[in-house]
Design a protein around this nucleic acid. Structure first.
Length: 461
RNA sequence: GGCUGCGUAGCAAAAUGGUUAUGCAGUGGCCUGCAAAGCCAUCUACGGCGGUUCGAUUCCGCCCGCAGCCUCCA
């Protein structure tokens, strides 16, 4: 029985789909004005893993992740670059898809863009005005009247009085209440705009997600996800907008992933302490990043450091080493006991650290079994590979992974040659020469491993 | 200030009212010409103070420390 932690109730709850066998999942995606950083990678990997697991459990999943391709930052960046905003966003959408593919993140089923959802957005804003939940401010912008929505603050555990006690510095005089947020924003000169009943302008950020999720999944759907920082105000506002407009319950389960941190601080654009995915990919292979993300539970903070990435590499090496040299047939049997343990971990709010622990236990048993019972080893190896696949890892050929390099300038042949020389030296019992060759290769980051049968395999550090 | 959440061994990271987490690193052994890998064994824990309990790292209270949100943010 799958249990999911619901931010709305602050409890793990048994997952009950609205419609038996089907799941609708919406995740707030990227605002595309720059390259994805490791924090974005975490969202992609976490919800990709969630999606994979739902499918594995036999659910018919519709996974929607939007693209915010119009907002203040995009406009600002386009002006800075002296390029058309649309050109800018298309460029970074391509880059994002590249990063995703690198991280073995499967594409969502639907990837709506804000700029292609303008009609739905305008319709929803109009409904909110008609229902008296929104109004046109003195500057022409349309605002949501937060005080008209009784449950405002329920998701984030805030109430309007507390929020107002915190009071912000710049009170926008166009609003009736400082907490009101913008639904439709009037365009300034030279800014992109769409026509609307309230004049030429563009949608506010929050309404985009309400409109896109409703469009793709209906007024009421199963799961909405995103980063912790979106809890307030973004998701709070989405609830107010969607429930206000439709009069129906919006979302059953809210899932929020924790942050990636650097030196115990949130990794973010504003702090400037972020590492982009492509930057990290220069040093570490993509699967290492994915593994690193999965070593921590999705709601916990994840501390980014070279040490953590190196640990992830070592862990992956261990799993691949266990698989090395074992034949896996496509229709091989699966060890049910390990599968059950793995699924129990994943059923417990997608507990990937425990799921990985099961894989390591499996690897240990596989290592023990290899020499004595090849048939059983085949079953264990097939199990290890299949369960790893649910996490999107360990699908490479073991030898290819272990010999792999970030910048694959291929001196493999030279290595093989050296190994042959060493094998000859060993035969001649010239240990000094054999050890020298091994040391030289070590200096190049190549580790040799002799097998009992006299053959030598190698891997890169 | 208000509201969330966290504090586990050298590092990372889970679970759990009494029983091995797991990975990396360390120590001892097996294996090896020597290594590496692997296997076996083993050492490091539950922020502090009270309370509940036969028994608490696990539940409750207080304190200390840390992070996040309250403004754009994954």
């Amino acid at each position: 029985m799958l249990k999911i932690y619901n931010t709305l109730t602050r409890k793990k709850e048994p997952f009950q789909p609205r419609v038996a066998g089907k799941v609708g999942l919406y995740v707030c995606g990227m605002t595309v004005y720059d390259y994805c950083h490791i924090g974005h990678a975490r969202v992609m990997v976490v919800f990709d893993t969630v999606a994979r697991y739902f499918r594995h459990q036999g659910y018919q999943l519709t996974y929607v992740r939007n693209i915010t391709d119009i907002d203040d930052k995009i406009i600002q960046r386009a002006i800075e670059n002296g390029e058309d905003y649309h050109q800018l966003t298309e460029r970074f959408i391509d880059a994002m898809h590249e990063d995703e593919r690198a991280l073995s993140v499967l594409p969502p089923d639907l990837e709506p863009k804000a700029t292609q959802s303008i009609d739905a957005i305008i319709a929803m804003v109009q409904t909110l005005i008609d229902k008296g939940l929104a109004y046109v401010g003195t500057n022409g912008d349309v605002f949501y009247a937060v005080s008209k929505f009784k449950d405002y603050g329920r998701l984030s555990g805030k109430n309007l009085d507390d929020l107002q006690a915190g009071e912000r510095v710049d009170v926008d005089l166009a609003k009736r209440n400082p907490m009101d947020f913008v639904l439709w924003k009037m365009a300034k000169a030279n800014e992109p705009f769409w026509e609307s009943p309230w004049g030429n302008g563009r949608p506010g950020w929050h309404i985009e997600c309400s409109a896109m999720s409703t469009c793709c999944l209906g007024n009421h759907f199963d799961i909405h996800g995103g980063g912790m920082d979106l809890q307030f105000p973004h998701h709070e506002n989405e609830i107010a907008q969607s429930e206000g407009a439709t009069g129906e319950k919006f979302v059953n389960v809210w899932m929020h992933n924790g942050f990636v941190r650097v030196d115990d601080e949130k990794m973010s654009k504003s702090l400037g302490n972020f590492f982009t995915v492509r930057e990290v990919l220069k040093k570490y292979r993509p699967e290492i990043i994915r593994f690193f993300i999965l070593t921590s539970h999705y709601r916990s903070p994840l501390n980014y450091s070279d040490e953590s990435l190196n640990d992830a590499k070592a862990g992956l090496d261990r799993l691949y080493t266990a698989l090395r040299g074992v034949d896996i047939t496509a229709d091989s049997a699966i060890d049910e006991a390990y599968k059950v343990r793995f699924e129990q971990a994943m059923d417990d709010d997608f507990n990937t650290p425990v799921a990985l622990a099961v894989l390591f236990d499996l690897a240990r048993e596989l290592n023990k079994t290899k020499e004595v019972n090849p048939q059983q080893a085949g079953i264990l190896a097939a199990t290890l590979k299949q369960l790893s696949g649910l996490l999107g890892i360990v699908q490479d050929d073991p030898d290819a992974f272990l010999k792999g390099l970030v910048d694959a300038e291929s001196d493999d042949e030279q290595i093989e040659q050296q190994i042959q020389n060493r094998t000859a030296a060993k035969k001649a019992k010239d240990w000094a020469l054999a050890d020298k060759i091994r040391n030289d290769l070590k200096g190049q980051g190549v580790i040799l491993e002799d097998s009992p049968d006299g053959s030598t395999s190698w891997r890169r550090e």
